[in-house]
Design a protein around this nucleic acid. Structure first.
Length: 274
DNA sequence: AATGCATTCAACCGCCATGCG
DNA sequence: TCGCATGGCGGTTGAATGCAT
């Protein structure tokens, strides 16, 4: 006997959503907000699994979804982010406002992996963080690895975190008022230890102010709690998507510093992925 | 026009993490 | 500490569509 399914499958609709179902779901969420996915279908009058509702909303119906082709700049960023993060689609998506993890995953599988292959690169070997990601996931296959890591002792590798920004997939997408909060850590302590402690202690709420007169991403500026610029380098004044995306990627490179600090990569990955 | 193969992407599935009682 | 409910993630599937013959 396994675990009970997330919802009763009996009598539930499957497959493509109808416009009516979309309308019901959208209307309900607009009125009551997201969450309580398990009970949502019943309350919304939908014969769907809660997970299906959530997926439909997250990947398709949300008003802030950016439809349309992936731009070359996004394309480039996805490739490079993937080289750093591996198949962490939600994390990658979090850095591409308006894009969903599913969309990026599909785009990777259909376009980019092929593109890389054509260029003579192995799409799979790109992901330097895949191992760390797998460990985090704690899937059965890797449980032994996880145990081994435990056995190495409780010593926690210190991680140098210049100015990591934790941006989840949702928070990265501008709300209708174009202002939303990001979680970020601001690190300015002098030693690694202090940095980590400082980073853990400080949660700087940042606002992403994006003007609305153009695309989803216009000029973007990060502010600290008191609307001061955070850490100087966190200031992004990008007049193009590419500028913003490039900046984000540069930060990742800086954070990872893969070649020079290989031992720290995994720890960083862990902390970053938390 | 008909057929078969290739590609795309929305949706599903199973698993894991987290929060709560 | 344990078990359950729920949310979230990544891998996979399959229907729809495009394209070549």
């Amino acid at each position: 006997m396994g675990r009970a399914p997330c919802c009763s499958k009996v009598g539930l609709h499957k497959g493509p959503w109808t416009p009516r179902e979309d309308a019901l779901l959208t209307k309900y969420i607009q009125a009551h907000g997201e969450g309580q996915w398990r009970s949502l279908p019943k309350r919304a009058g939908l014969l769907r699994c809660g997970k299906s509702c959530r997926l439909r909303w997250m990947n398709y119906l949300r008003p802030d979804i950016k439809r349309g082709n992936i731009t070359p700049e996004e394309d480039d960023l996805i490739i490079r982010m993937h080289s750093l993060l591996g198949n962490r689609w939600s994390l990658i998506a979090g850095r591409l406002p308006g894009r969903t993890d599913n969309e990026i995953k599909n785009y990777w599988n259909t376009h980019l992996s092929k593109k890389l292959r054509n260029q003579g690169a192995d799409p799979k070997t790109q992901d330097k963080l895949t191992e760390a990601a797998r460990k985090r996931k704690g899937k059965k296959k890797n449980k032994q690895k996880k145990e081994n890591r435990k056995d190495k002792g409780s010593e926690k590798t210190l991680v140098y975190l210049p100015k990591p920004m934790r941006v989840n997939a949702l928070s990265c997408i501008p709300r209708s008022d174009s202002t939303f909060t990001l979680d970020s850590n601001s690190g300015s302590a002098s030693t690694s230890q202090e940095k980590v402690q400082s980073l853990e202690a400080k949660e700087v709420n940042m606002e992403w102010q994006a003007d609305n007169d153009g695309d989803n991403m216009g000029n973007i500026v990060f502010f600290g709690k008191d609307h001061d610029l955070v850490n100087g380098a966190s200031y992004i004044d990008a007049h193009t998507d590419h500028g913003t995306l490039e900046k984000l990627y540069e930060e990742y490179l800086q954070l990872l510093n893969v070649e020079e600090k290989p031992d720290e990569l995994d720890s960083f990955a862990q902390s970053f992925l938390m």
